[in-house]
Amino acid sequence: MGDGLEISEVTGLGLVAVMARKGVGAEAIGQRLGLAPGLAAPATPHWVGDGALALIGTGPGSWLARSEAPTAEWAETVIERLAGLASATDVSASYRVFRLSGGDAARLLQRGAFVDLATPAFAPGSVAVTVIAHIGVIIRQIDETSFDVSVFRSLGESFHHWLTTAAATL
């Protein structure tokens, strides 16, 4: 351990909360959104997809659709495309997203989160909706050493305070 830590903020994201209608499965939603052929929306706390479109599992039948370079109409397009299959709403401005990269990223997050973040319990592709420092977070592991942590926008400053305070003691 100990390859350092880089903290940055990911901005300009498009985010849509997607909630399946009664009886609609994850596969249909994945297909309708145009994920890669055969790729379902994850039914477990995982994410699939790429920068253009990713689906992040946040609960049974609920996801965050994420796009790194959304057009002005992106959220509305997603919502319309899901009509009849899922209820969806634009939450692009709801979160501040911090990216933690480096060999110490997992250790820092483990100081805050009381969920097992070590492989194999947690690995690239894993998602955890949990709490750090009394602040609700969505942790998304991107690769071996990087994570996105999303917090509600209003709590961004408090979370940033925890991040910098805890990181200083690594």
Binding site: A20, K22, G23, V24, G25, A26, E27, A28, A40, A43, T44, P60, G61
Partner: peptide, 8 residues
Amino acid sequence: PLNAGDAV
């Protein structure tokens, strides 16, 4: 109850 395909 869960939706089909959301087995956990």
